[in-house]
Design a protein around this nucleic acid. Structure first.
Lengths: 254, 254
DNA sequence: CGTAGTAAAAATCATACTATAAACTACCGG
DNA sequence: CCGGTAGTTTATAGTATGATTTTTACTACG
């Protein structure tokens, strides 16, 4: 496994990313021992301080568990906090498990329509403005650019914010990861086959503007469904190849 | 603020809990500086290693952000990963923000009926057995005991597992925290006013057994709604008083 | 069968030194 | 005289290393 952390990152981050990606990619299986001290043959050389702090960071995400005398081991998958932004980023960094992404879309389908519904009911004028501004940026930027990705994320993020439920808003990270995943796919297929589903975005916006909760929810459900189907369709056209660099670039936005 | 960490915990955990609870309780406001070195007047005395590892752990949850030269500060609330099990535990440890719990119930209402629906469609016989066993334990144990809490959590957890979506399952922690919160309330009011909503649990189980997804979803929605209303009703009967000890005991289950 | 001893690994402590980026200063050109 | 820019300072996080303590699974002994 090639160490994907760039050398400009702090040593702590290099070590953390490296171990995390080994775990998320399945390179280190659940139950496997994580070395007590920094492994000289692991692609990095760090002191024990850095290494231990990295392990604490990973244990905070549920990826590893330390027990005295037994050692530090990779935790079972059920303990991983899959909704954590870092975990999603790491999961996205390697070879992507298609089923997992499908699960994320499924979760979005449960959550985002409700977020749109609440946003329609609870939004302030300022929040509506922000959603509209993001939509405008989506309309006016060329597809595939970083600008439109940022706009898309801002659009969905603003809707979460307008829903007025901070706990709900934490699921924003799921939207981010699915969006980055679909971008990664689209780069590998015929661009003409794909179009940003602007119409869906527009009518969700209108429903929120009109404070029509049910309609906002319905349209958002369609939007997420369309996004999933587009992504699945893109999968069929995917040719194998190295897409790492593009994803790395996108990741730096966050 | 009294340090709620028991002295039998590891020093690392005491420090982590102490700082985290200060943040979650609002004692340390967003943007506030977190001391560079362990604060002698903070209720604990630890070396810098332990203290730094605690800070890394907290930064993994999004609670704090370190920047060279500027210092380490409490992150804005929007960066907190409110769905993280630790965060929910810390949020529950202090004085509870009623609105926040209401938000958690709202999220449950979006997620859990769908989990029940999927569970009805995808469950294996073994998974159904586990749900049924948990239900039986709920029926056969006296109310208010730890046994019934464990059974209730196992019931909801089994349904999440049966839904076959690991990302969805991560939201189990939300169920745990709302359940513990409602238990905490119920201890402070007239016990005769409350009854475990067994009927709701039973018909959800039956729907899952019959693989009737829509019905399972509908009944689960009722269950969550009932739970919320019971909890809100209990709030009205709450007399002020120290409930910390009981919660501490419950927390140890996890 | 239980009990005391052993050791492996995490946890803790203490003390260095380094790198970074924000703030400040001094210089230079307009 | 003003404004900006390049260099310097410095506070703080980050990194490094070695030693000690605590916990606990395992083992050997009574």
């Amino acid at each position: 496994m090639i160490n994907t952390a760039s050398s400009s990152d702090s040593l702590f981050r290099q070590v953390t990313d490296s171990i995390a990606i080994s775990i998320l990619s399945g390179d280190l299986e659940a139950g496997a021992l994580v070395p007590t001290e920094p492994d000289p043959g692991a692609g990095f050389s760090a002191s024990r301080s850095v290494y231990r702090e990295a392990l604490k960071y990973l244990s905070a995400k549920g990826l590893i568990e330390a027990r005295q005398r037994s050692g530090t081991r990779v935790a079972p998958r059920s303990a991983w906090n899959l909704l954590d932004p870092d975990i999603l980023r790491w999961a996205l960094a390697g070879k992507i498990d298609e089923d997992f992404v499908r699960n994320l879309y499924e979760l979005r389908l449960f959550v985002e329509p409700n977020a749109a519904r609440l946003a329609a009911l609870r939004r302030t004028p300022e929040q509506l403005t922000r959603i509209g501004a993001a939509l405008t940026r989506m309309e006016q930027n060329p597809p595939y650019g970083d600008a439109i990705i940022e706009a898309d994320l801002d659009y969905h993020g603003s809707i979460f914010d307008a829903a007025g439920n901070p706990a709900l808003t934490c699921l924003k990270s799921v939207v981010i990861s699915t969006l980055l995943w679909s971008m990664r796919l689209q780069r590998n297929k015929d661009p003409s086959l794909f179009s940003v589903p602007l119409a869906d975005h527009q009518r969700v916006y209108r429903a929120i503007a009109q404070q029509n909760g049910e309609q906002a929810g319905t349209y958002m459900a369609t939007l997420v469904n369309d996004a999933l189907h587009d992504a699945i369709a893109a999968l069929r056209h995917t040719r194998s190849g190295d897409t790492t660099k593009h994803i790395e670039k996108i990741n730096q936005i966050y």
